[in-house]
Each structure stands twice: as structure tokens, then as C-alpha cells.
């Protein structure tokens, strides 16, 4: 027996996570990384701290107390209200997104516990159509908010989205109103909403629920903004400053509360939820469980 051979924990994943293959280059340092190593570290490079995108499922696995997540509305999927056709019909694109991402929609929602604190959650996954918000994604997010309202629990939404789903036209725009109106009711009920912005969060998602958090958290280096860089350049003829629309830019301008590394997310969320919702010091909450 070779005792020096590392033993890896077998972890089943439905779909190959980003990055693909066995090795990946760290875009920050150029270091060649074992995919297994970064997967086991929530897609964060241990040495440089670079955050690769993480799938919604993997995020949920690492976020909640083991075995507490219960998915809801898993069978809500996009329709084709406009019968939209560009170079190909929208339903064909949807099939491809589903196949490529292994997900039925760009959002997974449900309830789970973080250090024993029960929350309603919606997690977006950029791999499904760039996380674009259509009516199904908007519906799932709204239901997650309404679930929080019904159960009198806090709501957490992890955003990862290029913005609105163009192929659903005006209906995708209306999801901004729908989700924001639901958050109005949550706020009225004095239930906390924590918005976590991950790479990237743009357009209609940023201009609706994502910036309505009582607390807004971003992951390091996440791209966050309203208009895309190209649109801004074309419209204003300005050159964009270094680091424009990054989480760090937003923090500096006072637009978000914190930048939180993914590996610290669970503890930070616990402390914030404990302060705003359970009103018990985290040590006491943890002791109870």
C-alpha cells in the first residue's frame, strides 16, 4: 500500500463544474491548479484567493448545515411567451442551456439552515443562459421571498446574472417589478433580506432585488453594475478606470456593506442573521444546535 498517495474524498457532481478538465490556470498568478483541489475549496484558489464561479448546487452544499436544504419549485421552467426566434427559436436555446448546465432554470430555491438559523434562499447559476432573468427565474425568486414572508424567516438571494432575458422581452423587465414588490412586503414585515452579489451581477438583476438588501454583500472581485462596459464606453466616449464595476469599486463608493470571501460566507451570514433576526449571539445559537 502506498501511504504517501493522497486519498481524495469521492464527491458526486451531476455536471462538470467550471473549470473543465483536470487542470486550470489561476488567472491571477498563472499557477497551474488541480481542479479537484479548487473544487474542494469552494472554487477558491487557496494561495491567490481567486474566486472561480461556483455552481448553484455546490454553493448550496457548502452554505447550509448538512442535510437541511429542501429545494422548492424545482419544476418551474421557462416558457416562450413571445414565440421568440432569432438565429434559432428560443425553446431550442432553452434545451441547450438545460443540457449544458444540467439545470432546469437559472435559479434554485428552497429553505435551509445556517448554523441552525432557518432561511429562505434563491441561488442563481450563471451557467444557465448567463443567469438571465426571465419569467421563470423571476417567479422562483419571488416565491423564495414570499416563502420567507409566509414562514417569517429571513431571505437570502445569491445573484449571478448578465441581466434580463431578452428573449422574453417586456416580461423579463416586469420580473424586476415583481421581485421588488415582493421585497417591499418582506421589508414591511421587518424580515431581513441579505443580497449576495457574485460574479457577475449586471443589468436588470442589479437594478431590482440585488440592490435591495438590508445588507448587501459581494464576493471578492465580482463584476457588479447596471450598464455593460461597452455600452458606457460607446455612450460617453470615456475610458473606464481600472477596477471599475468591481466589488472593491462598489465598496469604496459606499454602495455595498461588505466584501466577503466565499470561505467565510457561512460565518458572516450567521452573525448578520443572528443580529438582525434571531437576536441571539451566534455562540448561543450554535450551542443550541
Amino acid at each position: 500500500m502506498h501511504f504517501d498517495k493522497p486519498t481524495y474524498k469521492v464527491r458526486k457532481t451531476a455536471k462538470k463544474e467550471i473549470p473543465k478538465g483536470l487542470y486550470t490556470k489561476d488567472p491571477l498568478t498563472g499557477e497551474i491548479l488541480f481542479n479537484k483541489e479548487i473544487e474542494d475549496n469552494q472554487m477558491v484558489v487557496p494561495r491567490s484567493g481567486h474566486h472561480f464561479p461556483i455552481s448553484a448546487r455546490a454553493r448550496i452544499d457548502s452554505l447550509f448545515d448538512e442535510g437541511t436544504f429542501v429545494e422548492s419549485d424545482a419544476d418551474v421552467k421557462s416558457g416562450d411567451p413571445l414565440k421568440f426566434v432569432d438565429s434559432q427559436p428560443y425553446p431550442e436555446r432553452l434545451k441547450r442551456y438545460e443540457k449544458d448546465s444540467g439545470l432546469p432554470e437559472a435559479v434554485i430555491c428552497g429553505t435551509g439552515k445556517i448554523y441552525g438559523i432557518k432561511v429562505s434562499v434563491a441561488v442563481m447559476d450563471f451557467r444557465f443562459c448567463g443567469g438571465a432573468m426571465g419569467a421563470a427565474a423571476g417567479e422562483k425568486i419571488t416565491r423564495a421571498i414570499e416563502m420567507a414572508l409566509t414562514k417569517k424567516k429571513p431571505c437570502i438571494i445569491f445573484s449571478a446574472s448578465g441581466g434580463a432575458r431578452m428573449q422574453e422581452g417586456i416580461f423579463s423587465l416586469m420580473q424586476m417589478a415583481k421581485t421588488s414588490a415582493a421585497l417591499g412586503r418582506l421589508a414591511e414585515a421587518k424580515l431581513p433580506f441579505i443580497s449576495v452579489l457574485t460574479h457577475p451581477t449586471m443589468g436588470g438583476v442589479t437594478a431590482s432585488f440585488a440592490t435591495l438588501g438590508d445588507v448587501i454583500i459581494a464576493e471578492p472581485a465580482a463584476l457588479i453594475g447596471f450598464a455593460g462596459a461597452r455600452v458606457i464606453k460607446d455612450t460617453t466616449k470615456q475610458s473606464l478606470p481600472a477596477g471599475f464595476q468591481t466589488a472593491e469599486f462598489l465598496l469604496k463608493h459606499g454602495l455595498i456593506d461588505q466584501i466577503v470571501p466565499r470561505l467565510e460566507m457561512r460565518e458572516r451570514l450567521r452573525d448578520i442573521l443572528a443580529a438582525l433576526h434571531t437576536k441571539k449571539a451566534p455562540a448561543l445559537v450554535a450551542a443550541k444546535n
Binding site: 424586476m176 437594478a207 435591495l212 453594475g225 450598464a227 455612450t235 463608493h253
Partner: peptide, 17 residues
Amino acid sequence: AFPGIESEARHVSEAIA
């Protein structure tokens, strides 16, 4: 809404939201 550096820096997304 105006797409610009200043507009982003003063959080147009949040203003709309």
C-alpha cells in the same frame, strides 16, 4: 437610464430598484 461612470458610482441600479 444614463449609462456612465458617474451614474454607476452613484448607484443608478439602487436608485431604480
